[in-house]
Every structure is written in structure tokens, then in C-alpha cells.
Design a protein around this nucleic acid. Structure first.
Ligand SMILES: [Zn+2]
Ligand SMILES: [Zn+2]
Ligand SMILES: [Zn+2]
Ligand SMILES: [Zn+2]
Lengths: 172, 172
DNA sequence: TACATAAATGATATGATATATCATATTTAT
DNA sequence: ATAAATATGATATATCATATCATTTATGTA
């Protein structure tokens, strides 16, 4: 197998690649500082994995990320290490796991100061582009109501929605 | 391995087991008639798989269902057949696939006449009990708004929420 | 520095969910 | 009776994930 990334979900590179790169540097620096504050360490490997997610701008599987880090970022990266590292990054809220897609994305709020709100993820079924938005309080409350009426409690208020992004909608 | 069903998610049997069985018969009959109307066939195997989902009252993986059909319903059932049959049953809206849990449930509306509404699934992380409820139009509209503002379109308005059921909440 | 300890990473095995493909059996139509 | 379509069986393989033990690297203390 040539790689885990198929023709159907190409890794997108936006035009202003140089700008993106430097913006990623800032995000990584912020993430590193954030870890230092908490007494954890954003090691080289961890930084590379996060960088992979930032650069691809897509929801990536652990195996896809392993390939990407090796092939594009020149850092040997066994899949099992990627899983461990993603677990760490999730704990630091630098990365989110999308259960609907069995994939991972970089948090869009890394450089923000505000507390992380309840995230809502819009996942393009076709290209795995992801938009991380915040649920309106009123909407969340309505959902919570539904849930408790049915005799359940929300375990994780993270909501993930199967979508098609506008680009893919136009193309397909 | 002894089976796919672990101690943590035992198959629940409610007290009025005889009543449930007869009610399942009715559901199966209704499902069969519904298929006949559409020119499809609810074969013996398909009926058995659906029966398994009705009896266990839980979200089941294809492999768990294969075991259950063989061990409890006396119908040899290779996992690959289960996948095919589940795909058929999904198409008939007799079964829903929960992507969040990688499991399948029987639709609760099989005996209803009304058109199937947008389903919302509350999934107990601990015991896999599932409640299929309907989203309020206003809530759905609010979500849709969020989605389209972000440049996405809802591909499937099915919403699945990670929950804990009251029984497990009390126990745990 | 030298050593002990803890943290991070590497490597291997295995489990769990899912798809693809071809063979066989059953049903339906002619 | 035969052909075609449908349903099922069987095998291989892809994909996502966890468990475990070995090795390396970083950190703290004598
Ligand atoms: Zn985030
Ligand atoms: Zn897309
Ligand atoms: Zn339903
Ligand atoms: Zn429960």
C-alpha cells in the first residue's frame, strides 16, 4: 500500500502556504508555553504530530498521521507512538478526537485565552475537512432537555455532525 | 475468546420476557409486511438478525449479533452475512447504524405509520442501551443554522449523543 | 559526576470493526 | 427446464485501536 491517504481525501494546501507555516509556528509556540505552564512537556515528537494536524487542516487517522510525519516532516513515527502522543495532546486540549470519523483534529483555539467551550464539529464526509464551532447555549440547553426527558444524562456534550463542505458540495 | 459480549455490557432481559417476545413477533410481522409492500423480502436470516436486535434492546456490533443469533436464536450466522443483512435492514429503515458507537439498533418506529422523523440517539456509554428520540424542529433548525454559517451542509441530520443512562448513573 | 528514578518512545502482538471478492445456494421469471 | 436475479457462505484483507514489554531519554539526588 502506497499510503493511508487516498485520492478521495487529498491533503489540501492553501495558497498562502508560507503564511500558514509561520502561523503554525506561532500556534506551536503557544502550545509549548501552555504545556510548560501546566508542568508538561511538548516534546519534539509531540510537536511534530501537532504540526501534522495543523498543516493538513483535516481530520486525520493515527496511521495517516504517522505516514505524514515520516514522509512530509521527516520524523520517523510509529503509529503506536502517534496514538500515545494524540492521547497526550487530547489531555492538553490541543487536539480533539472525532468519534464519528475515528480521526483527530488540532483544536482551533490553541492561541485563544478563553476557556474551551463545548465544541461542535462539522465533518465533511468526503474530504475530512473539519470546522470546530461552538454550540449556542440555548441550543445546547434544548438538547440537554431532550436527553434528560428520555432518562439519560449527557456524558460528553461534544456534538459531531456528518456534513458535506461547500467545496465538496459544488464538486460532487 | 468466549464471546464478543463482555461483562461490562451484559444483555439485559426485562421481567416480562414473554410479553416482550410476543410484541417482537408483532414488530417482525409488521416489518415483513412493510418489506412486502416495497417489493423486498424479509428473509428468515434477516428476520433473525432483526429479532436479535429487538430482543437484546441494545446497540450491538455486527460480531456480537452474529454470536447472539447463533447462540441464542439457533441460526448459524457468519459476521459477513450480518453486515450484509444490516445494510439491507438499514435501507428499509428497520435498523439504524450508530456511527458513534460502531453499533446497530432496531428502529423503535417499525410499527408506527408515521413517516420516520430525524432521529436522535442517546447512547449509554456503559451498557449500550439506546433511546431513539426525535429532535424538535426548532432545535434542528438552530443546528442547521450553525452548520451553514460555517460553510457546511448537513449530510445526515442524524444526531448521536454520548450519554449515561439513569440506571448506569445510579450504579456507577 | 554517578547513580537511581521517572517519563517518553520503540517494537511486537493482538483485538475489533469493516470492506472486497468470488463461490455457492436459493428464488424468480421465462 | 433453464436462465437470471437474489441471497448467502467463505476467505482474505484493510483499518482503527489497545496491551505489553523493551529501550532510550530526561530528571533528580547523593
Ligand atoms: Zn478545541
Ligand atoms: Zn469536503
Ligand atoms: Zn428509527
Ligand atoms: Zn447504561
Amino acid at each position: 500500500m502506497a499510503g493511508h491517504i487516498t485520492g478521495e481525501s487529498p491533503i489540501q494546501r492553501e495558497p498562502g502556504i508560507a503564511n500558514l507555516m509561520s502561523s503554525h509556528k506561532q500556534v506551536l509556540a503557544h502550545a509549548e508555553a501552555q504545556c510548560a505552564d501546566k508542568g508538561t512537556k511538548l516534546t519534539q515528537k509531540r510537536k511534530t504530530v501537532l504540526q501534522g494536524l495543523l498543516q493538513t487542516q483535516q481530520a486525520m487517522s493515527a496511521y495517516e498521521l504517522a505516514d505524514y510525519c515520516r514522509d512530509e516532516l521527516g520524523e520517523s513515527m510509529p503509529p503506536m507512538s502517534v496514538y500515545r502522543i494524540l492521547e497526550f495532546l487530547e489531555g492538553e486540549q490541543l487536539v480533539h478526537k472525532l468519534k464519528l470519523a475515528n480521526r483527530f483534529v488540532a483544536c482551533v483555539h490553541i492561541t485563544c485565552d478563553h476557556k474551551h467551550a463545548v465544541p461542535q464539529f462539522l465533518i465533511c464526509e468526503q474530504c475530512h475537512r473539519v470546522s470546530e464551532v461552538s454550540i449556542k447555549e440555548s441550543t445546547l440547553r434544548a438538547l440537554r432537555n431532550n436527553v434528560e426527558t428520555a432518562g439519560f444524562k449527557l456524558a460528553s456534550p461534544q456534538i459531531e455532525l456528518n456534513c458535506v463542505c461547500d467545496t465538496c458540495a459544488v464538486a460532487g
